[in-house]
Each structure stands twice: as C-alpha cells, then as structure tokens.
C-alpha cells in the first residue's frame, strides 16, 4: 500500500506545531496502525530526520496508552478498538490519512502526537479508590454477596482503560464518560458505597478544575470508546452527584 500521511509535528510543549505531509510505501495491509508509524519512523531515522513521537505500550488494546485522532476520529474509523488494534486493511491504497494528537485544554501536547493525560490521574487520585487496606486482609469473595447485575455493571465500568478517546471525540472535550466510569465502578459495589458521596463530589470537582468541557449528551464518547463504556454511567454519576450535593 502507498499512503500519504498528514501528521501533526510539534517540537515541544511550548512550540507552535503544524501539519507535515509524508509519503509512505511498502505498507502491508496486515500491519497495525502503530507498526505503520514504526515503518515511517525507521525511514525518517535513516534519512537523519526526527522520528514522529507517539504514545504506545502494550499494543494489545488493554493499557490505554495509544491515542491518536485518525481521520477525525479517536483510534481511527473502526469501533470498539484502540489504535494499536487498528489494521491498515481498514484503509485503501493511495489514501490520505490525517493524524493528530487528542485535542483538549486538559490534554496539552508534549511533543508531536504525545499528549499529557495526567489530568485523568488527578481525577482518579481525587477519589477513585476505597480506603481499605486489602494487603493481607483479603476476605473470601463469597462473604459479601453482590447481585450479579451490579457486579456486571461495575465490571463493565471498570473496563475503562483511561485512554481519553471520550474527551477526544467530544465536541466539548468533556471527561464525563471517563469520570463517570470511575465513579460507577465503585458506587455499584458495597465496598465503594461508604465513600460514595465524598468520592463523586471530589472527582467532579477535580474534573472541573482540570478544564474539561461539559457533557451535552451527544453520545460521541460512547460510540468512540474502545471499551464501549455506556452513557448510563454518566446518568449514574449525575444521580450520585445530585444525591451527594443535597445531603
């Protein structure tokens, strides 16, 4: 496959970036998107040019490190996958592919396609935990019965890998799908109920401080989420927050 890549290049956090065009050939349709970028970088290094910086780690869709806005959509045109799981067979020979970093005030660009997603970590640190010492005190799983439906919903919420696609896809750069998933995975379980009020207040407060936008229920996040986190979580967070604020 021969492709034209339009890639955002930015020297560092303070520099002004711009789109650069690269032509690449010898792309196999079986390559993953990140492998295609590896091939591009090899050729750039051979030419003595600066390779394109991009985030990646596990390359099997579970770590949430890879990002990229590909042709206007986070993680590219496919659904329910991360960029590392996107294959070049989804594109046609001769295609032009536009690759940009995730854009949000709360996700500043560090270099090229790499953005700083520490704002997500700070939201987590604000309340996304339970204050129980579990090391050495693990109790038998059956000692605390949990309805299957609640356990399932908590599990689905917990599948969020914190990649930031929800923010990238949202026209308002809102982090409500992420925050609500992290609120929900705890709020649904008895262990999480004890601190539910403080948790939701603190996490939403942190989310606002980070400068994310507000949810207008367009639903883009749910569709672009590689893990299919449901909008139901946002409604649950809204309920939890309302309950906590009138308490």
């Amino acid at each position: 496959m021969k492709l034209t890549l339009k890639i955002w290049r930015q020297k560092n956090a303070k520099a002004k970036g711009s789109m650069q065009t690269y032509n690449i050939s010898d792309v196999s349709p079986d390559m993953s998107f990140l492998e295609m970028l590896d091939v591009l970088n090899d050729s750039l290094i051979e030419k003595g040019e600066e390779p394109v910086e991009f985030d990646h780690d596990c390359r099997e869709g579970i770590c949430g490190t890879c990002s990229l806005q590909i042709n206007g959509e986070p993680h590219g045109p496919d659904r329910g996958i991360t960029t590392c799981q996107l294959h070049m067979r989804k594109f046609k020979d001769g295609d032009t592919i536009v690759i940009e970093p995730f854009r949000a005030a709360a996700f500043p660009v560090i270099k090229d396609l790499v953005v700083d997603r520490n704002s997500f970590d700070r939201i987590q640190q604000a309340g996304g935990y339970i204050s129980v010492n579990t090391s050495g005190n693990t109790q038998d799983a059956n000692s605390l019965p949990i309805p299957k439906e609640d356990a399932d919903m908590a599990f689905y919420a917990a599948t969020c890998i914190g990649c930031g696609a929800c923010v990238a896809a949202c026209k308002n750069a809102s982090a409500m799908l992420f925050t609500s998933a992290k609120v929900s995975q705890m709020a649904l379980l008895p262990q999480g109920k004890i601190e539910a009020s403080e948790r939701v207040l603190a996490m939403v407060d942190q989310m606002d401080k980070e400068g994310f936008g507000n949810c207008t229920n367009t639903g883009a996040c749910e569709i672009e989420c590689p893990k299919g986190i449901s909008l139901e979580n946002i409604a649950r967070m809204n309920r939890e927050y309302l309950k906590a604020s009138v308490k």
């Binding site: 042709n71 308002n172 367009t218 569709i223």
Partner: peptide
Amino acid sequence: KARPQKYVNFKPSTNT
C-alpha cells in the same frame, strides 16, 4: 475553552 486548539480534521457526523 476546553478545546482551544481545534482539530484539522474532525468528523462528529460519524458518531453524533
């Protein structure tokens, strides 16, 4: 304000 730098290519019509 939450997205000061706009995307060059943004396709919200595909998901909203």
